[in-house]
Design a protein around this nucleic acid. Sequence first.
DNA 1: AACACATTGTTAAATCTTTGACAACTTATA
DNA 2: TATAAGTTGTCAAAGATTTAACAATGTGTT
Lengths: 211, 211
Amino acid sequence: MEAKEISKTVIARLPRYFRYLSELKEKGTERISSKDLSKLMNVTASQIRQDLNNFGGFGQQGYGYNVDYLHGEIGKLLGLDKPHNLIICGAGSLGTALAGNPDFINAGFRIKAMFDIDPVKIGKFLHGIEVHSNSELEDFIRENDIDIAIVAVPVNAANDLKDKLIDHGIRAIWNFSNTDLDVPDDVAVENVHLLDSLMRLSCVKVQHLDS
Amino acid sequence: MEAKEISKTVIARLPRYFRYLSELKEKGTERISSKDLSKLMNVTASQIRQDLNNFGGFGQQGYGYNVDYLHGEIGKLLGLDKPHNLIICGAGSLGTALAGNPDFINAGFRIKAMFDIDPVKIGKFLHGIEVHSNSELEDFIRENDIDIAIVAVPVNAANDLKDKLIDHGIRAIWNFSNTDLDVPDDVAVENVHLLDSLMRLSCVKVQHLDS
DNA sequence: AACACATTGTTAAATCTTTGACAACTTATA
DNA sequence: TATAAGTTGTCAAAGATTTAACAATGTGTT
């Protein structure tokens, strides 16, 4: 029997489940039913059960889901059972802000270095992270077991940087530049597109037509 | 006849169309067919035609779409024909980075002020934008015709802030704190959730199972 | 141990989204 | 002016996602 494919839509929802489960865990909640979780998260109980069932039976009939166990299992699915080593390319204000975000560190993402072309920035420490020259990129990636690269450079530099990163072995790119980075099938990319998100806000009138 | 509803999925794609059309416009391309645009954007021509047709016939049979005109029309749909006045709540490194992002300004989003509770920051200028005390929030919003508020404060302060903002008349919130802000029906919110996005990257293995 | 209750996993129906197909129309060319 | 080529708008089919329903199974209580 072929392993049934799990849709991207479902996978995209996992971090949100994880977030709510983290909160429940913190509050000391031991178990939760799909019904109660659905109220909390503003989705249908059916969707929760359907989603979780894609990955195997995490719940127990008549009991619900054990918060701790489910939290752990979804964490594993998200790859959070192992730490991840990141670099940030671009030591501008966005790159620097990302370097200082404690949420990432708490979730096990370790930012190992920043890279920039500006000689003034190279050698400096931002939020405790050293800014290196781009010329050190390749060696640094190989020697420090880097998992994920953050692209926080201007649009016009993003594509060349992407090619270099892939060339140096990076297989996951978090892209903050305002362009879509196309990558081969074996490379994962998350295009964040803050401006797109902001535009969705300013088009409220359209949304109101349709609801 | 009832106006047919336009799905959120379609609306969510508009900023991406707008982005590609901006690029085409800059390159001086006068007209484009759904087929050519589909190649550029990596979607089907059918989807483009279907999407655009939701808003009326922007194209012309046998000719295609006029880049300039389509760009303008989508811009209007996105509310970009009028400028928007923003405030940033939270003058931490993320708020500051957003304040300095030139993409937003180029798209007509004008950042009018920042707000913070830290007395050390109040009165300072970051990327040319003054940091105000939270106590000035209400008056500033009313007097400066503020459209959109950016929430870039720690999780535990986000919900109270949201309530205040809505109370003071804000109807669009761009939320960067790592929690879902629930809002009434007449308020728009975009929850950015950077950490969720990062987690989608670290769960590459799951994704590879399913493709 | 038996019963009432709660809750999942799973199936099937309903809904939404995407794709393919083509008539209708425009442009360009001879 | 007639014809060939190109392209949209639109309809219908295919595919994906969400929701509802319920049998199966576990829990808790008496």
